[in-house]
Design a protein around this nucleic acid. Structure first.
Length: 470
RNA sequence: GGCGCUAUCGUCUAGUGGUUAGGACGGGGCCCUCUCAAGGCCCAGGCAGGAGUUCAAUUCUCCUUAGCGCUACCA
């Protein structure tokens, strides 16, 4: 049974790239009856914020993504330090007493930096003595040198990877303040939590060689790896809040009226393909279809622009889900939107209204904005709709239609249609005048659902009132 | 600079030596029709460049170019 983890560092809102990484971990876990672990990599106390943690939970909750175990790295520091000590004791690490370098000093060094001279060779007696004397040091991994050793691992997405150990620098495990670095903390936790498949962004691909070294030093079983292509902006740069704004935050899509399953669907299609031309897929279909073989190796562009901040394909997918999802699932989401606008829901016709208008909308937001006439009486009369009402004879005829609908025994699509067509024949006007006029009167919009559907969605009382009020 | 990864329509992608290079979004058009959507049909649009290997390269190899990543006592 696989154990996988999503390990965000809470230094900002939930990034869509992070959300996608969670989703791929989750798909893999759910497909293989595995365990999904949420681990907050919050060792960078300077940059961690509660706001960020809340944002991560908010985003995941909205997407309906669940996990089975939860940890915070900041509560596991003793474990990290203990494992670092173990690596030191086993001779795979050494203390580096070189004072921290400034930026300028680093710049001066041309060529690759591998280690500080003299530090690898310190005897354990001298090292212990200087440490005991309180001299600050960084604990570094003693990367094998001059042995022509290759570090290798198999990536489920990128295939076999290897790198000469001689090209890997002696990276830090423990900082001079005793705190573990990301590499140390992450690997220690992965070992302790028995993670057996690490699924993360491709930005970690080259870090993995270091991690393999740590795993080997720790003597544990080396996990498998799967690196995911990165999400980038149309300009090729990686998505960043500073540069690209709210398009990188998951909550933006929630607020824009996305269905969570549609957004998950969209994110999955960025860098992964079921290879059978399927596009619209439910959560379960995604779980069933997921394999690492379907993961692409090149970065995927999230296609947004200043004018259109939402990727058109995401928008389309949302529309697809919107019109095919079961009403029992959709109604609560629409309800929340409508009520957030302070509008009243005609309970007896709610389902009918949503059925009537959903095919025309692409976001939940549309129900409260474009759909306002269905839930409120104070809606705007669009110019094009006004023109329909200004057709010769239109207003008096519509008022008459209202009176007849009010007085008729039946109120069904068929009965309204009969009344309307009889009236148009009687007065010798084209039915279109009344049909389009009704739509304009009922919704203030020149375009929309079939007029007779509209009567049913609006109900008799509201329809009559609006017709008589033209 | 060094090391690594990547490169198919504008975008997301299918494709692992022989295909009219397929699908989707977006764009254009037609049909349907009480309008608008939805739906159906059609059109335009692509293998980064150059060498090689081969009877045959989008596909394999190399080079170039471009993008991205890593190169911290950040994660």
């Amino acid at each position: 049974m696989p154990r996988v983890r999503f390990a965000p560092s809470p230094t900002g809102y939930l990034h869509i790239g992070s959300a996608r990484t969670f989703i791929f971990n989750w798909l893999y876990a759910r497909k293989n009856n595995g365990t999904m672990i949420l681990r907050l990599d919050d060792t960078d106390i300077e940059r961690n914020t509660q706001v960020s943690i809340d944002s991560i939970f908010d985003g995941l909750k909205w997407l309906g993504l669940s996990w089975d175990e939860y940890y915070r790295q900041s509560e596991r520091l003793d474990l990290h330090k203990e494992m670092a000590e173990r690596i030191l004791a086993a001779g795979f690490a050494y203390r580096d007493f070189t004072p921290a370098q400034t930026e300028e000093e680093k710049q001066e060094d041309s060529g690759p930096w591998l280690f500080h001279p003299g530090m690898r060779e310190l005897t354990s007696e001298e090292s212990d003595a200087r440490a005991a004397a309180g001299e600050p040091f960084v604990l570094r991994f003693r990367v094998p040198r001059g042995e022509n050793k290759a570090v290798k691992f198999k990536d489920s997405v990128f295939g076999d990877q290897y790198k000469k150990a001689d090209e890997i620098e002696d990276f830090a495990l423990l900082r001079s303040n005793g705190m573990p670095t990301y590499h140390m903390a992450s690997c220690a936790d992965d070992v302790d939590l028995k993670i057996d498949h690490i699924i993360r962004g491709q930005d970690h691909l080259t870090n993995t060689f270091k991690h393999v070294l740590i795993f080997e030093a720790l003597g544990g079983v080396k996990p498998k790896f799967a690196h995911l292509p990165l999400l980038i902006a149309p300009d090729g740069a990686k998505l960043s809040k500073r540069k690209h704004g709210p398009v990188v935050s998951v909550t933006t899509y929630r607020d824009a009226g996305f269905l969570p399953q549609a957004y998950i669907n969209f994110l999955c299609l960025l860098g992964w393909s079921p290879k059978n031309n399927r596009e619209q897929m439910s959560r379960q279909e995604l779980i069933d279809a997921f394999t690492f073989g379907g993961v692409n190796r090149s970065n995927a562009v999230v296609n947004f622009s200043e004018a259109d901040p939402i990727d058109p394909k995401a928008q389309w997918l949302n529309g697809q889900h919107l019109r095919t999802v079961g009403l029992e699932e959709l109604l609560p989401m629409v309800r929340a939107r409508i009520e957030a606008e302070g509008l009243a829901i005609p309970e007896e016709r709610f389902g009918l209204i949503v059925e009537t208008i959903r095919a025309r909308y692409t976001s939940l937001h549309d129900f409260a904005v474009k759909g306002r006439p269905y839930f409120a009486d104070d809606f705007a009369m669009e110019e094009a709709a006004g023109e329909r009402l200004d057709e010769p004879e239109a207003r008096p005829l519509l008022r008459e239609l209202g009176a007849r609908v009010e007085g008729s025994a039946e109120f069904t699509e068929a009965s309204v249609e009969k009344i309307l067509r009889d009236l148009s024949a009687e007065r010798d006007v084209k039915p279109g005048v009344l049909i389009n006029g009704s739509r304009a009167a009922l919704t203030g919009q020149a375009v929309g659902p079939s007029a007779f559907h509209l009567f049913m969605a609006m109900g008799r009382e509201r329809s009559v009132a609006r017709l008589k009020g033209v």
